[in-house]
């Protein structure tokens, strides 16, 4: 059970629900137990287990009875009262209203000291948590787990056509959130 906490943290970071995360840990360890002979020791045990957990999380999203829909584009933005936050960054003619590089210096280099790095990661997590659930799920499946767009869309319950718009919107929101927090390297 020494890896259970790490698996739990990983699952919780994706599904944001304690009970579901616990169930996923159980499923993951159960699957690992069944496939133990396939573990060849080329990677560490924790890396192997996290790899299994990634698939379990993706399966969980696929099975969550999400019906792919174009309406998800609007549903994902419910909390904005219909306004795209990025609209406020551009004039009606499409020119910048704000300096687009302000506060994003941290993207050019990763801070060396661990305290600064942890602070930066805490902000990234906070910004990701601000995304509406469906946007966050889609974005994480695509950007972090590396699924292609149709697979990520299907698991997140949006159509592939909507996914392109939603992914762009997620990036824009995250970028804006990081920029507003303005962490310097």
């Amino acid at each position: 059970m020494q890896h259970a906490d790490a698996l739990y943290r990983f699952a919780l970071s994706r599904v944001k629900d304690h009970h579901t995360a616990e169930d996923l840990v159980q499923d993951c360890l159960s699957a690992a137990w069944q496939r133990l002979e396939s573990f060849d020791g080329r990677s560490s045990l924790s890396t192997w287990l996290i790899g299994i957990m990634k698939f379990k999380v993706i399966d969980h999203f696929r099975k969550s009875k999400r019906t792919p829909t174009d309406q998800a584009v609007h549903a994902a933005d419910e909390d904005d009262a219909g306004q795209d936050p990025v609209d406020s960054l551009f004039t009606s003619k499409g020119a910048w209203k704000v300096d687009p590089s302000h506060g994003l210096e941290m993207l050019a280099s990763t801070p060396d000291d661990s305290a600064h790095r942890n602070e930066l990661m805490a902000w990234v997590r906070a910004c990701m948590d601000k995304l509406p659930e469906r946007l966050r799920t889609l974005f994480t499946l695509r950007e972090v787990d590396g699924l292609d767009v149709p697979s990520a869309a299907s698991a997140a319950g949006v159509t592939a056509g909507s996914a392109a718009v939603l992914l762009t919107r997620s990036r824009q929101r995250l970028r804006l959130c990081l920029q507003e927090n303005g962490i310097q390297p």
């Binding site: 790490a6 698996l7 943290r9 990983f10 970071s13 996290i50 687009p100 590089s101 994003l104 941290m106 993207l107 050019a108 990763t110 930066l120 990661m121 990234v124 997590r125 990701m128 994480t140 950007e143 972090v144 990036r171 995250l174 970028r175 990081l178």
Partner: peptide, 17 residues
């Protein structure tokens, strides 16, 4: 900036556990 953000988010999520 977009590439840097992708890298930063991936690193953050991979360290989450």
């Amino acid at each position: 900036q977009f590439e840097g953000m992708r890298k930063l988010i991936k690193t953050t999520c991979e360290h989450e556990h």
